[in-house]
């Protein structure tokens, strides 16, 4: 009976609720990886889970072909977002971001991955504090990127009042588009008293003009980590299914890159062997055979 109620109540969109006329942002993210991740990918997962108090971490998914099972898992955990890391060949990491029941689904290729642990940045933040999300204006230039921005906002933005979240803001997540890729950075906001000796007079004049308590401290940022770069590949209309509605034409798969590299190396070898063969033939034609037995009248034999 409960499940029936659940299924019925789920039809109402859960993202925005009107409780007492107040609009709410409700998000829950299922975070998991596929099998075959390396330690680095695992550490990234650890970092992401630590950053997102509204996330639910699940065991590694066994399959890489039947990703639609993720919808059921998300349903099981009451999650309306899925962040799925798919590792291929133990080196390439793909990230799937999906709005679970029927929303769009985005596949991204993750590169230049550096986890919090290996970066050794001095920044630190409260576990579960809500970040300020900073997006590049370039996200609004194409509909695909706007959609990606929205999904990023749902997944990486910690909703207000999320379980285990803290009421303070002490870090910024920045998403920037450069070179057709999305660059992710995580900074700590550190507040410091403004330098008094240098511009004492200016400050006095400032304080006379505007007596805001918040303006007294100067903000500066210290990076926390992790760092990674995402290249959008495709967007599906459904969650892990449905028609493709966007495809990045600039994306080159890492396999293609590797093949190209290997071919180029092979070409080098081929040209070298070809050259050797040609030389041999030429020598034969001229009667200059290499490795021929020395005759009696050979110079080196005669004048030995």
């Amino acid at each position: 009976m409960a499940s029936v109620y659940k299924s019925i109540s789920k039809t109402i969109s859960k993202d925005i609720k009107d409780d007492d006329g107040i609009k709410r942002n409700k998000q829950r993210v299922l975070v998991l990886t596929s099998r075959g991740v390396t330690y680095r990918h695992r550490h990234l997962l650890k970092d992401v889970v630590a950053m997102l108090p509204h996330s639910r971490k699940d065991a590694k998914l066994d399959t890489k072909s039947k990703l639609y099972h993720l919808n059921e898992i998300a349903d099981l955990y009451n999650c309306n977002n899925v962040l799925f890391f798919e590792a291929r060949k133990r080196q390439d990491l793909y990230m799937w971001m999906s709005k679970a029941p029927n929303g769009p689904c985005i596949k991204l290729h993750v590169q230049n991955l550096h986890t919090m642990e290996e970066l050794n940045f001095t920044g630190n933040a409260l576990k579960g504090s809500r970040p300020i999300l900073s997006f590049d204006a370039a996200f609004d230039q194409t509909p695909a990127m706007t959609l990606i921005k929205e999904v990023l906002l749902h997944i990486f933005g910690v909703p207000k009042g999320a379980r285990k979240s803290k009421p303070f803001v002490d870090h910024v997540l920045s998403f920037t588009i450069a070179d057709g890729k999305i660059w992710f950075r995580n900074y700590q906001i550190s507040e410091a008293e403004p330098t008094k000796k240098v511009d004492d007079d200016i400050e006095k004049s400032m304080s006379l003009k505007s007596k805001k308590p918040t303006e007294q401290t100067e903000l500066s940022l210290v990076e926390i980590g992790p760092r990674f770069v995402m290249t959008p590949i495709i967007i599906l209309e459904g969650s892990f299914g449905g028609p493709v509605i966007y495809e990045n034409k600039e994306f080159v798969s890492p396999n293609a890159v590797r093949t190209d590299l290997r071919n180029r190396r092979a070409q080098k070898y081929n040209s070298r062997t070809e050259e050797q063969q040609r030389l041999e033939i030429k020598r034969k034609e001229l009667g200059l055979e290499v490795g021929k037995a020395k005759g009696e009248l050979d110079e080196s034999v005669l004048f030995a």
């Binding site: 993202d15 942002n25 999300l133 509909p143």
Partner: peptide, 25 residues
Amino acid sequence: LTQALERIALPLSSLPFVEHQSLTT
């Protein structure tokens, strides 16, 4: 794409900033 966006988009204009804490340059 726009349809999908409309389906999932948060009403950022009507939501208070505290709810989403997102900024665009």
